[in-house]
Structures are given as C-alpha cells and as structure tokens.
Simulated assay, not measured.
Amino acid sequence: MIFRTISDLQAQVVAWKAEGATIGLTPTMGALHDGHLSLVKRACEQCDRVIVSIFVNPTQFNNAADLETYPRSENRDVALLDRVDAVFVPSITEMYPEGFVSNVRVGGLSERLEGAHRPGHFDGMATVVMKLFNISKADIAFFGEKDWQQLQIVRRMVKDFNHSIRIEGCVTLREADGLAMSSRNRRLGENARRRAPALYSAMQKVADAVRSGAERDVALDVGIQILRDSGFESIDYLDVCEATTLTPAEKSGASLRVLAAAWLDGVRLIDNLVV
C-alpha cells in the first residue's frame, strides 16, 4: 500500500500495533538499487510489518543543483517494493508544513568528514529521520553501512533521546568490481564508471598499510596517490578514524574505519571499510 499522508500511515500503524506486530522501517530517498533492497529483505526477515519511506529530503542538501539532479524514479521504486506492507511517499509540505521551525542536531559526530564538506547536511538528515521514527513507531530501523557516519549519528541520536527503536546496520553491497552501490552511480559516464572502483582500491591499500603498522599519514598518502592517478578531480577527505567516535585514529586497532569522499566526472562518491 502507498501512503502519502502522515495521518493515513499512522492510522495503519495503530492497527498493526493493536495486532502486536513488530514494525520495521527502511528510510530511503528512492532511486532504489540492490543495496536498498538488501535492507528491505533484512527488514522483512526480522519484522512482521515493513515500511519503506521514499523522500528526497531537501533539508539535507546544501547544494541546490545536487537536489535538482538527484535521481527520482517513484513508479519503478514502488514496483520493486512489492514485498513490503507500506510505502510512505510524502510531499515536502507534508513533512515540513508551513511554520515548521524545529531542527535536530547531533554535535561532535556531525562536524568532521561529511559534516565539514556539507554544512547542515546531518542536521537535515537527523531531523527527517527523527520524524520518520516518530511517524512510523517502528521497532527496528535498517540503515546501510555505506553511509557510516550517518549510521553513527543516528545511533547517537537514538541513545541521547532515549528512543526505543533499535538500529540495524547492514553491510555495504558492492558491484563485482568493488564499487559501492549508490544511486549516484547512475550519473557516472562510461569512462568514469570504469575508473570509479579505484576509490575502493585506495581504501583497501590504506587499510592494508595501517594493519601492517604504517603511520596514518603515510598510509593515507598511498591512497591519495591512487585516487589522483585514477583521475579523481578532487578528494574531500580520506581518513582513518575510530569507528564509533570518528576521531582521527591514533594507533592501529580493531575499531578503526577508513572513510573517503572524492569527485569523479562531477559526481561525489563516498565509501568506507573496516581496517
């Protein structure tokens, strides 16, 4: 079933809760790919009822052109979601009616990496995710590990606000050549698509170097050179961080993560992997 208003979805949720159903939520911005569908599959396996939201959230875009060009394919997306119980497709005015002024900000975690290059992005993300949690009354929410910083921010927000929802992180799905699945991959030209897996290769080399005992800066220089040699136009960041706090890594350990964001063919690609 497709729901376009908050009131209609909430009425359905009340009925499901009365039946004692466990509700799962998968928030998306549409343009679905196999990575999204893996989250949906996990939700269907763990929950009695599953809600998938499709909403291109304008408040998490700090670039108007990026918002305008973000891929949208509602009919195709809905067709791919035949297994779920509810697809929530609200309008912007439904989510942000006239007079809406509130904002959720998760300090610290939001300030580095993505936050430094996309001011306000995580405030918009946290606000809409909190709204979706409250609207859906979900018991479990499913997020991909590809947006690792986002996942840590959502977990921190849930903990800080004593929200009862459980957050499930799901492994990043990759193409055969290692490129992380993303809606933005559709915008890569043929030549750029061939070069894009270098982002994953660069992160692997960095992780390997750190595991071998290399200094953080030395390891990062290796990755940066791979990206430059592969034709990436610019690198927003490539870093080794503590996995939960996202602070720069001081020493090797099991809780480290390599995180990267770089531009190729005018498309911004992000990725991460465990060290």
Rank of each mutant, 00 (worst) to 15 (best):
H117S: 14
R186F: 02
K137A: 14
S110N: 09
K159R: 15
A198P: 00
C170D: 03
N134T: 13
M181N: 00
A192P: 00
F161K: 11
I135T: 07
R184G: 08
N191H: 15
C170A: 10
R112L: 11
A116I: 04
G124E: 01
I135S: 02
R187G: 13
G124T: 07
H121V: 06
V128T: 02
A138M: 06
L151P: 06
E168P: 01
M95C: 05
A176T: 13
N103D: 12
G169A: 13
L151M: 08
R187S: 10
S182A: 12
V129G: 04
Q150L: 07
P97R: 10
T172F: 00
R155V: 12
A180K: 01
A180M: 04
A116K: 14
L179G: 02
W148C: 04
E111H: 07
V128G: 04
L109Q: 08
A176L: 14
I167C: 10
L179C: 09
F161C: 14
V158I: 13
M157G: 02
A196L: 00
G189F: 00
A116T: 11
R194N: 06
S136Q: 03
F122M: 09
H163T: 08
E175F: 02
I153V: 09
H117C: 11
L188V: 01
G189Y: 00
